[in-house]
Design a protein around this nucleic acid. Structure first.
Lengths: 223, 223
DNA sequence: AAAAATCTGTTGCAATTGCAACAAGGAGGA
DNA sequence: TCCTCCTTGTTGCAATTGCAACAGATTTTT
């Protein structure tokens, strides 16, 4: 039932069905690896990931790939946010796993409802929650990318990953090293070199994708 | 009248006054250069810039400054978004100009109003707009920082600045070069060197802070 | 108006990062 | 099983970036 989704959290079946139609929403499925949106002529259309995961990927003129964002369930995307493809680079959203995506126009969501239904304001509330999540995850992205060296980009990323790991579980890098380098926006072999250094100095332990950080707490701020 | 603010857009005087109290909001003033929040123990408190502008700034262990975000009027900030100060770095929000800031807790904004006032849902709607703006500006930030070289970080920043410039006006860099380097997260003199190169090759013209870009459109994607 | 502070612009040298090439280790399909 | 494709890991060399120092310009303060 595509009417049931995170945007309609807290709303009963009948209203869900009604609004789904009223807002001109649609749900589409995509196979892993396929392109969900190429960010051209989408206007204010917003995509919300109901199931699966996806990545916002950019290829520049030289073919260099950059993973701008990774989107899990509840992730949202659209031309409205992401800087669009331009003459200098090509941006697309690619399904990582099989995906189910809800599409809706921003203008539809915000239109003043003639019937002033309470459920409409609940939708706006839910949208606020999704948008807040997006802002938080973009902030993390900025935190990582604003680091000046590969080493600190990596450490910053690993720390954030650690914090997201459930209590008692071993933190795990969600990518292959190759993909990680595209995510940190650095050269793969240079990243590999930094990983080797951190391992050698005992700061980092990795087996497969599971890792452990032991930071040296000298030379730090008192807070 | 602090009751009138962007969060209360579309709401009449009486309700503004009532909600301002009901939500435990407060408005504070800050002098240019002063520290608005040091991101410690703020919990879910959110700041909204009513007047003035501010920057979210990080200093690392070596004293290197990074401008994580710049916030104009309607900009929002809080520990909830920005990665907080840690043992390795210190984050604060600094007023660029004299500021008037509205503080409110996220939990207060989202609490189910017993009186189910229509104006409350309008506040949520306004908040969604502010949050969307934040997501958009963070996306731009990622766009710039994800570039691999100083040259492309600079060009990407200048292009975005151009696009924001009102029709007919000359685009203008909003910072000094020194501050710009902290915003692009690169070394100042290396940035200066790249600017010199672009000037020499005729791609970039700058006088004071006004600039003009003439990009060479070879080797580009057809879109 | 003089002094102080800040910003711009440049440069040589050092450190970091990117690039290319290659060997070795899975994973999955024919 | 063998073969292919993809990822990991390493390295020498080249290019980019950071650092430090300094001179001149500009702005702010006294």
């Amino acid at each position: 039932m595509p009417e049931h989704n995170i945007l309609f959290k807290g709303i009963d079946d009948y209203d869900c069905y009604r609004m789904f139609t009223c807002f001109n929403m649609e749900v589409k499925k995509f196979r892993a690896g396929s392109c969900i949106s190429d960010y051209s002529k989408q206007g204010d259309k917003i995509g919300i990931i109901l199931k699966g995961s996806a990545g916002v990927v950019r290829y520049d003129v030289n073919g260099v790939r950059t993973i701008i964002e990774t989107l899990g369930e509840q992730g949202i995307f659209g031309e409205y946010f992401t800087y669009p493809s331009s003459a200098r680079n090509y941006v697309e959203v690619v399904a990582e796993k099989d995906c189910e995506i809800l599409f809706v126009r921003r203008s539809e969501l915000l239109k003043r409802c003639e019937k002033a239904c309470t459920c409409h304001s609940r939708v706006v509330e839910n949208m606020l929650e999704l948008m807040t999540e997006k802002a938080v995850s973009l902030s993390e992205r900025v935190e990582v990318l604003s680091q000046r060296t590969i080493e600190s980009k990596l450490i910053s990323f690993l720390q954030i990953t650690e914090e997201k790991t459930a209590e008692g579980k071993t933190p795990q890098i969600p990518f292959s090293t190759t993909v990680l380098s595209d995510y940190l926006c650095v050269n793969r072999s240079a990243l590999q070199r930094e990983i080797a250094k951190l391992k050698k100095s005992g700061v980092l332990t990795i087996s497969k994708r599971k890792f452990k950080l032991k930071l040296n707490h000298e030379n730090e701020f008192d807070i």
